[in-house]
Design a protein around this nucleic acid. Structure first.
Lengths: 418, 418
DNA sequence: GCTATTTGTTCAGTGGTTGAATTATTTGAC
DNA sequence: GTCAAATAATTCAACCACTGAACAAATAGC
């Protein structure tokens, strides 16, 4: 991922702790509490929660309000005795994140505000495989420009952008390989060089981060889903199968950001050849094409997004071949997931992307395999649930990652804003 | 794991940052640099490294020296111009950690000082399967008492203990299941209740932490191995196969501390039944018994520790059946490891425990499978190497975890010491 | 012996938190 | 309608830990 500082809580200052770090840290702590609260907290409440004094919280909040990150909520009428609390909420007109996505059959752009609300969302459907990367990115910039204008109209300031790509991305933003897109060694930042809003670095923060689609989809799920800061595996079942691993509320990216290639976990070591060069990879059993073929829809040549809808319809109608195909796919997926759970001791598995609409049929066989194969299943059940976000998960997650960076390090934003 | 606060760098204070946190943090930063340095650093050098002023570093070091965590090294004669630096080293007579291990055919105790040196080590060989857990732990306490006396003789103060168990351990120290030991639901802390040195909690720090053997072995390898703070998978090939996952220099324990059960990753979903209830688990192909059987040594009934030695001897001698067995085992292991690397994007895999002496024969097939099955193998080679520590890895890792906790949070130790 | 150089300490200054007192704003009792 | 109780938020002197600069200490080289 290109210059990504990580997406979760403020980093442990590996080096020193200068004096100002204290305030920087407390800005992040207080802002984080405001973001995590379900009801607008008061200064006094924050003080009690954090252990800071009310004096300190007041000072910190003053900074946050001055920096347009936080505003005071409408006073709620009935509170009880005493001076009524002034609730604090994340600013609805402060900085926002721009999320972009290039995928096989669509481009997407969205804007997410500090509170995580999706304020704008456009999808441009088109088969991108015939296009050159440069042309695809040109169209993406059009979408981004429109999103930027839309954001400005709502009083939002875009603080950065993240781009989701269904492939392996380098630290330098180079897309090493995006098999389903047909991309190989595409230098995204260089190709976007002529578009200042996406390239001009502000205050050391890179304006555009390029990251794997499955990872960003997992992030989207993390912020949109029911568990605030849990650990889970988010599986994006598209043409290929990717996964994002969230551990303790933060994305685990691996040594080079290439974690989550669950589609190439060997399932039958001597099984059919996979295009990755291996044999019997999970993808050859539960990839979209494999499921369609098993369901007898191989030749239908449906667009990727309607294929899963069609499968769900047929399954709903009780079509035996489809039900059988989904059961098989679910079992295969379950075997792989059982291995992952044995390895990582996760308590939640999220079926996302194209798997989400099929979750009703995939879930039972997945659970069966887990219960048979996970050593600790007896003591601690594993939750398997469909994703909350649909196809837009990656773009929303991308935009969310920008916003989360500000929430995690508000001091950077404040000093930069003057 | 029983009340373990994690073993790596100082935690991000999730809650508040009070004023004193600053000093606490800098104590940890400076101490960490002293621990990580290969030559005793000077105060001035530390100031340059950390970005703190020399004044601050002096004050911090003064605290550390007063707390007996750091001492000034012997002045080195030739330094160059200027006032000679006074090198700082971790105290050799400060706090130390007690590491304990219960395994199938031995008990072990060791003492590791702040600098990570093993100052004492005893192994008591005996088949523990016939013993009751209480009797086994009684013998362990004997070893621990002797180790404690030995530590005192060398001027060391034991700051806590950690116990490695080949099984699944609860947050409360309950050993849920240790199949090869024949333990089930053994409440270790309760059984040790009569032994104050292992149970009297000092300053909120639990005196004894119970943790999975594979996890602690990985920690031992982390501190003893060549890469200071890398990410790797450490595989302990014993009767069962366990693994410890180290990510960015800290152990990943999973939601309940039950991560690393690599032995039960499904390899052939319809393969032979495993005692875990699943089918075709890795362990049924590369567990010690499976390898011995494949090598034609099934009936030999060797003690566990000599079995691998014997295998290595025979392989060294070119015995075809043994070479074939090891190649098969290595291939199976490689398939599983390829899945793990695809999932986690690790750059290093360590063959530990019983696999270490066999690494010469296991490594090539493992590498072959990785190169064929890991999607990113082309861009970033995966290192597969034998473990540095041998059978003592878990006990040393256990003792090391105690010491690391002090290094990570020196403030706790200092206030406790007065 | 003198100078250059580097280490470590001292000390006034400053930023940010602390704790108590004060002010502000509401509810409820008389 | 007034006052007491209760809760929220601000003010302000004190304090803690870091900063920066000046200074003392200790050595090598000339």
């Amino acid at each position: 991922m290109w210059q990504c500082q990580g997406v979760s809580r403020p980093d442990a200052p590996a080096g020193a702790v200068r004096q100002g770090s204290l305030r920087e840290w407390n800005l992040a702590v207080v802002l984080g509490r405001i973001a995590a609260a379900d009801h607008p907290p008061s200064r006094a409440g924050l003080a009690a929660e954090t252990g800071l004094t009310r004096a300190t919280v007041s000072a910190v909040v003053e900074d946050l309000v001055a920096g347009r990150l936080v505003t005071e909520a409408e006073p709620t009428p009935r509170t009880g005795a005493g001076r009524p609390a002034r609730g604090l909420v994340l600013a609805a007109d402060g900085p926002a994140g721009l999320g972009l996505e290039v995928n096989v059959d669509y481009l997407a752009a969205c804007v997410v505000d500090l509170a995580g609300r999706v304020r704008h969302h456009t999808v441009h459907r088109a088969d991108l495989r015939p296009l050159t990367p440069a042309e695809a990115l040109r169209r993406l910039v059009e979408l981004a420009t429109r999103a930027r204008a839309e954001a400005a109209r709502e009083g939002l300031t875009l603080a950065g952008a993240a781009l989701a790509v269904p492939g392996l991305v380098d630290d330098a933003g180079l897309v090493r390989l995006a098999p389903n897109l047909g991309w190989r060694d595409v230098p995204v930042p260089a190709l976007l060089a002529g578009h200042p809003p996406l390239t001009a670095s502000v205050d050391g923060v890179p304006p555009l981060v390029v990251e794997n689609e499955a990872n960003l989809a997992a992030l989207g799920e993390l912020h949109a889903g029911p568990d605030g800061a849990a650990s889970f595996l988010h599986i994006s079942g598209e043409v290929g199968i990717g996964a994002g691993i969230v551990l303790d509320g933060s994305l685990f990216r691996g040594a080079r950001g290439w974690s989550g290639e669950i589609g190439h976990i060997p399932l039958h070591p001597d099984g059919p050849a996979c295009r990755c060069g291996g044999r019997g990879c999970l993808e050859t059993y539960t990839g979209q094409e494999a499921i369609l073929a098993a369901a007898g829809l191989a030749g239908a040549d449906l667009p990727a997004d309607t294929a899963t809808t069609r499968l769900a319809e047929l399954a709903e109608g009780g079509e035996p071949a489809v039900l059988r195909a989904l059961h098989h796919a679910g079992s295969a997926l379950g075997v792989a997931v059982a291995g992952v759970v044995n390895l990582l001791d996760l308590d939640t598995v999220v079926l996302g992307g194209g798997y989400a609409p099929l979750a009703a049929w995939l879930r039972p066989p997945v659970l069966t395999e887990i219960s048979h194969r996970v050593l600790t299943a007896a003591w601690s059940p594993v939750t398997v649930r469909p994703a909350v976000l649909g196809a837009e998960a990656a773009a929303v997650g991308a935009a969310g990652s920008v916003v989360r960076r500000i929430l995690a390090r508000p001091a950077g934003w404040l000093t930069h804003r003057g």
